[in-house]
Write a protein that binds this DNA or RNA. Structure first.
Length: 103
DNA sequence: GGGGTGACCCAGT
DNA sequence: TACTGGGCCACCC
């Protein structure tokens, strides 16, 4: 799998996250590791920083629900508009966390 | 080759 | 809650 294809895999997965749900960087890394091998949460963050603008970047959050994007204010708006379960400091992960096999 | 950096994560204090 | 240290790995000097 080439680096370009790998980036496509990440973006494609982010696109699959339904409105009102989110995925953590670490969860994305863990899921993709099953098919492509080496992957780290750190690398997902790096890819989102470079190519995230093309997808639903606001549906990707830190593992504890914090919004770590440079534009977290906008992310919060979009998430609330989608009906994402929120709590002080970010997303309510137990209720909002999504995994591909969920749907 | 060597060293700093980052949209991360976990465990310990 | 806040801060620290260690691990992680692609990228860029």
């Amino acid at each position: 799998m080439t680096p370009d294809e790998y980036v496509d895999e990440v973006l494609a997965l982010v696109e699959r996250i339904p409105p009102g749900r989110v995925m953590a960087y670490g969860a994305i890394a863990e899921y993709l590791a099953e098919r492509s091998g080496r992957v780290s949460a750190r690398r997902i963050g790096s890819i989102m920083a470079r190519y995230g603008g093309a997808v639903a970047w606001h549906r990707v959050v830190a593992s504890d629900g914090r919004l770590v994007s440079p534009s977290r204010a906008e992310a919060r708006n979009l998430l609330e508009r989608e009906g994402t379960p929120m709590r002080a400091g970010g997303v309510d992960m137990p209720r909002a966390a999504w995994w591909p096999e969920d749907g």
